[in-house]
Design a protein around this nucleic acid. Sequence first.
RNA 1: GCGCCCAUAGCUCAGCUGGAUAGAGCAGCGGACUUCUAAUCCGCCGGUCGCAGGUUCGAAUCCUGCUGGGCGCGCCA
Length: 594
Amino acid sequence: MTGPSPAAVSGSSRTVSPFAPADVLAPRIGAAIEAAFGAEYAGVDPLLRPSQFADLQANVALSLAKKVGAKPRDVAEKIVAALDVSDLASSVEISGPGFINLTLSPGWLSGAATSMAGDERLGVPRQERQIVPIDYSAPNVAKEMHAGHLRTTVVGDSLARTLEHLGHQVIRQNHIGDWGTPFGMLIEHLLDVGETSDEATLLEVDPNSFYQHAREKFDSDPAFADRARGRVVKLQAGDAPTLAVWNRLVGLSKVYFNRIYSALDVTLTDGDLAGESMYNDQLQAVCDELEDRGIAVISDGALCVFLPGYTGREGKPVPLIVRKSDGGYGYGTTDLATVKYRVQQLHANRILYVIGSPQSLHLNMVWDTARAAGWLPDDVEVVHVQIGNVLGSDRKMLRTRSGNPLRLMGLVDEANTVARKVIDEARPDLDEAIRAEIAPQIGVGAIKYADLSVAHDTEYVLDLERMVSLTGNTGPYLQYAAARIHSIFRNAGMAPDAATAPIVVAEAAERDLVLALLQFGSTVALVGDALEPHRLAGYLFELAQAFSSFYEKCPVLKADDAAVRDSRLALSALTLRVLTQGLELLGIRSPERM
RNA sequence: GCGCCCAUAGCUCAGCUGGAUAGAGCAGCGGACUUCUAAUCCGCCGGUCGCAGGUUCGAAUCCUGCUGGGCGCGCCA
């Protein structure tokens, strides 16, 4: 067994939302349990779950039965007898073996929805502030970004947005690959072609070509290869002219990264760059400290950390190599330095690594080493937000090495082209300029949603058609729902903000919509807690479905009654705010027309 | 060999941390635009939750074994 050490779980407080029915009901049921069975049962989870027979069901009676030595049904009776929810529920029923079915009253739903509409935060709790460095995206200098980078970038960005919204101080850490052996070759190639040449410009638009040209020269021209190797030595020695060229190389790549981030509408900026090179001056100290304290030992000429519980082939211990036998440092050393930096300099409470799942073993070894060295205290939570492998159509893992033809920029372009085609067909009435502005919001929304709507740790086959699809459970479906609401207000000649009438729940479709709306705050809190943006995506899809259904069944502007019309306007406005806010947390735009 | 992860409808995936009759989307079939945007809505069809045991009031979910697949396991990152 490898020794994946239990991360010091700081138990990030799963805060409650003031409008979510389950959050409101839980303490009531808790009080009833306490009243019925005594203070020792004060803290038990009422096990509130959505129900097919009511709005919610509490399953606690079944789990409590054997503890209190009574039949589940009788336990439920006692809880219900002590339960006071007359202001919330229109019906409390015990059914089956002891389920407590709760149906919320229209009056409470109306009041909760109206209150939510008056809340700036839409019921999203503000949590106790934590400092949370998030390591994500991490492209390589002079390398094309591919579909694998898309996922870490999009998921990491959504987590950053969500945690910030919950009140945390997020520190984005774009750990770009800007150091290492290939840089000798890249620098020499850049020197050969000239920094202002067309070839150099490839770094901004088609970095793989630049890389491959350098690689070809390296493989075919021994003299070039020698120069490249010599250049690595100079680079690592801190030779000033070499560093100047290296800087230029990184600068050209930054242009490329920023083009992608801008196209993808990702929040990463140059200020978030925290590449491998940033830790150069700390690597020796990391090694020295580990060696001096006996945590690392020399093995086959390399400085290694051997941790208990990590064995590989033939039962041999697996090392974390912190200094290669040639004296160079690998990524293990850099990763240790990042842990130190994030704990000691950034004062992190919780550190997220949004990186590929194959790195799991490596990360655990880094963390265990950091713990052994005292660099990672128990009260700092480290989490590997595992990004599942992206597979090609052959179901094989896409690798950077294989020179996969599907460039990320190509994927974006393709999606935007499809979006443009669809909008041209569907909305010829819109101005050319408006369609040109909206199409990329839809195309990129489709791509991002495709990645955000599935669990981040599952591997998946890259399916272009699915990613750029605009119907069904897709980003554009959510955007469309929001756009229809904007349209209602355009027709009404009023701003959504002006729709502040009380919300009154009457029709079933209104009820379903309100019920969905009230879950927003607790859903966002859950995403921050579990670090799973796909739950927010799933929630928003359900909300959009509830709205679409409401839209079909409940005329807003043509409602017979003025109060009903005003209520529905307020309900539509609230839905719009939740959809827009939710999409923003996913990093997806909400066009006003589409 | 050791370790980690995965297996749910024809396809792509959910399944709120153990709850009642397992849900969506796509595909297929049938309906709904002189009515706030049909990128939509309503309905139908479709599953032995890989297999076998176990735990318990109750299992897609937890445990064990098996089958099948992915990934990782010393000087690339």
